[in-house]
Design a protein around this nucleic acid. Structure first.
Lengths: 211, 211
DNA sequence: CTCCACAACTTGACACTGCCAAGATTGCAC
DNA sequence: GTGCAATCTTGGCAGTGTCAAGTTGTGGAG
C-alpha cells in the first residue's frame, strides 16, 4: 500500500527471509503457515486498518516467499474473508452462554474490543467474498445468537415490535463498539471501563417505567 | 488497487486521456481539477469503499496526467483527509437547525445515507492525516452541534448524566447509520423508510415514564 | 504592453503491490 | 520404496503511490 513506507532503502527485498547468519535453515514446509499469516494480518489490521495488509508483507513476516500465502487464501479478498468468517465464529461462541440481552450487548462490545481486527473486517462487505460458504454459515450462526438474545426479553420491556427492539439493541451496541475501537470516544469514556459504560448505556433502552 | 481489474488488456494506459478523435483538445489547465477529483473519489468510495480509490485512476477519469492530483492533495491520505473534512462540514450544516435531539439523530442518519462516502471516511482515522487543521476545525464544529442537541434535552428525560446520554444517542445513531450503509440491515428494514425506522428507534431511548 | 514569478500540469523513474504460471521440494498413502 | 498431492519458490507482468525535474499557462507588477 505504501511503497516508500520504510524510506528510500527498504529493509528487505522479496524472497524468503534470509535467515540470520548461523541460524538453522528454515524448513521448506512452514508448519502452520495459514495460522501465521492470519496472525500477522490481524496485527497489521489492528494497528493500521484492513487497507494496510499486503500479502507480500505478511509473507515476509512469516519468512516465506511472496506467493506462499496465495496457496492458503487464494488472494487478498480470500484472506480477509477467512478473517471475517473466523470473527463471526468467535462472536458466536462469545454470545453462546449470554444471560440476557444486556449481557449479550456487553459481550458484543467486549468482543469488538478484544478482536478489533476481526470486527472491522466482519462489517466491511466490500472487502469480502460475498458468496463464501464458510463466511455465510458463521454469520448465520452469530446472527441466530443475537436474535435469540432479543427474543428472550419480555414483551412489556421492549415494546410491541420485537424486530424494532432488535435493531435498536444491535444499533446501540454496534455504534458504541465502532466508535470505541475507532478511538472516537477516547475523550468521552476516558479511563473508565468500557464494559461498565456500556452497561450503563443499556439502562436507557427498553425502560417501561421509571424507578 | 486491483491490477487485473479490467482483464488482461486494460482499456487505457497512463498519460492524459487521449481525447476522442476530433474533440476539442483538452486545455492545459483543467479548470476545477480539485472538485473533479473529489467527485470521482466519492463515486468510487460509495461503490467500492475507500480502499478502492487510486489516484492514478481518478486522474484518468478527470483526463489529466497521473501526478496531477498530487498538486491538490499532496498524496492519497491528503485526498481522504480533504473528503473527511468536507464531510464534517456538511454534517455540521445538516445539524445546523435541528429541532430537538430526536431530529438531530434523524438528520445524522440521513446524512450518512445521502453522503455514504464522506461518512465512511470520516470515521476511519487510519486513513486520515490526524493533525490536519481543516479536518480538526470541521470536526470540532460538527461535534459542537451534536453536543448542543444533547444538552437541549431536559434532565428528567435523559437521566442525571448528560455525558452518558450523549454517548447513548450518538451510539444509537452511529450504529444504525453504519449498519444501514454497509447493508447489514437490508433484511430487517426492508423497503421501509429508514428515517421512520430510526425515528421509532429513538422512542426507546430516554423514556422517563410509560404512557 | 511586456515580462516574470508562480501555479497548474506533464514526464519519467523507482520501489512496491497483487496475481498468474511454471518449477522445486516434501511428506504421506499405498 | 514409489508416486502423488500438497506446499512452497522463482520469475514475470501490469498496476500503484510518490518523488524529482521539466513544461505550459496566468495574473499581476512595472
Amino acid at each position: 500500500m505504501n511503497p516508500a513506507k520504510a524510506g528510500p532503502a527498504s529493509e528487505k527485498t522479496d524472497g524468503p527471509a534470509p535467515e540470520k547468519a548461523g541460524g538453522p535453515a528454515r524448513p521448506y514446509h512452514h508448519g502452520d503457515l495459514r495460522r501465521a499469516i492470519l496472525g500477522a494480518a490481524l496485527d497489521v489490521i489492528a494497528a493500521e486498518g484492513p487497507s494496510a495488509v499486503s500479502l507480500r508483507d505478511l509473507a515476509r513476516r512469516a519468512g516465506v516467499s511472496h506467493a506462499a500465502p496465495a496457496h492458503h487464501f487464494k488472494d487478498r479478498v480470500g484472506l480477509l474473508t477467512a478473517i471475517a468468517a473466523e470473527g463471526f465464529g468467535l462472536l458466536a461462541t462469545a454470545l453462546d452462554d449470554a444471560g440476557d440481552l444486556r449481557d449479550a450487548g456487553v459481550r458484543y462490545v467486549r468482543f469488538a474490543r478484544e478482536h478489533p481486527a476481526h470486527f472491522q473486517v466482519m462489517f466491511a462487505p466490500e472487502l469480502l467474498r460475498a458468496n463464501d460458504l464458510e463466511l455465510a454459515t458463521a454469520r448465520t450462526l452469530a446472527g441466530g445468537r443475537l436474535r435469540a438474545a432479543v427474543s428472550a426479553v419480555p414483551a412489556e420491556g421492549r415494546g410491541p415490535d420485537a424486530r424494532l427492539a432488535g435493531i435498536a439493541a444491535w444499533s446501540l451496541a454496534h455504534g458504541f463498539a465502532t466508535l470505541l475501537i475507532s478511538h472516537n470516544l477516547d475523550g468521552q469514556v476516558g479511563g473508565q471501563d468500557p464494559d461498565e459504560v456500556f452497561h450503563a448505556l443499556t439502562g436507557m433502552l427498553f425502560r417501561p417505567e421509571q424507578p
